[in-house]
Lab assay of single mutants.
Amino acid sequence: KVKIAGPGLGSGVRARVLQSFTVDSSKAGLAPLEVRVLGPRGLVEPVNVVDNGDGTHTVTYTPSQEGPYMVSVKYADEEIPRSPFKVKVL
């Protein structure tokens, strides 16, 4: 029921550039959304989540370095389908 889309989860994500993606939970009811961005060697990146007021949230983060990242998206305390997402930061 929760959908996710945006360039911040795709290929070609650049280090030190603001990345974003949208989480659409409009068909999933009200529940807490939790997003974690883990970088190389367990680095935890700050994440900004904005409630758009229409059942969607815009998530932004800036990867601080190149390497493999994991983006975990939980809704109602459960990983959404395909989460955690593997993101290769260049």
Rank of each mutant, 00 (worst) to 15 (best):
G8I: 04
L18A: 13
T22W: 07
R41T: 14
S26V: 06
G42L: 07
N48R: 12
R82T: 11
G6L: 04
D54H: 11
F21T: 01
P81H: 06
K74V: 05
T58K: 13
T62M: 11
V44R: 12
N48T: 13
H57E: 03
A28M: 04
P84Y: 01
D54C: 08
H57V: 05
S72N: 09
N48D: 12
G53A: 11
G29Q: 13
V2C: 05
V87K: 02
V37I: 14
H57Q: 09
G42M: 07
L30T: 15
P63K: 00
Q65K: 13
V23R: 00
K27H: 12
P84R: 02
P7I: 07
G39K: 02
L90N: 14
S11W: 07
F21I: 05
R14K: 15
L90M: 13
V37T: 02
Y75C: 06
T56F: 10
S83Q: 02
P40C: 04
K74S: 06
K86T: 14
S20F: 10
G8D: 04
G12N: 15
S20C: 11
V49F: 06
A31Q: 12
P46C: 08
T60F: 12
S64F: 07
V49P: 02
V50H: 15
L90F: 07
K1A: 05
R36D: 09
S64L: 10
P63G: 01
P68M: 14
Q19T: 13
R82D: 15
I4C: 13
V71H: 00
K74Y: 11
D51N: 13
V59K: 02
G39Q: 03
D54W: 06
Q19K: 02
P32E: 14
E66C: 12
V13R: 02
K88H: 15
G10I: 07
P7L: 08
H57A: 08
V71S: 00
V59F: 06
S72W: 04
G8C: 03
G67V: 02
G39M: 01
G67S: 01
G6Q: 04
E66F: 09
V59T: 03
K3G: 06
Y61I: 03
D77F: 08
N48A: 10
K1I: 06
R16D: 11
Q65N: 10
R16E: 12
V17T: 09
G39E: 02
G6A: 04
E45V: 08
K1T: 06
P7Y: 07
N52V: 08
G29M: 08
V71Q: 00
T22G: 03
G10Y: 05
R14D: 04
A15Q: 12
S72G: 07
V71T: 00
F85H: 06
L90R: 15
L18K: 11
A15T: 08
A15D: 04
S26I: 06
S83K: 01
V2A: 01
L30C: 11
S72F: 05
R82F: 11
K74E: 03
V44Q: 13
V23W: 00
T22K: 09
L30E: 15
R14H: 13
D54E: 08
K3F: 15
R16V: 03
K88L: 12
V13L: 06
T58P: 01
P63E: 01
I4Y: 04
V35Q: 01
K88I: 10
V37H: 00
F21R: 00
E66K: 06
Q65I: 13
V59Q: 02
G39W: 01
Y69C: 04
G42F: 07
H57Y: 15
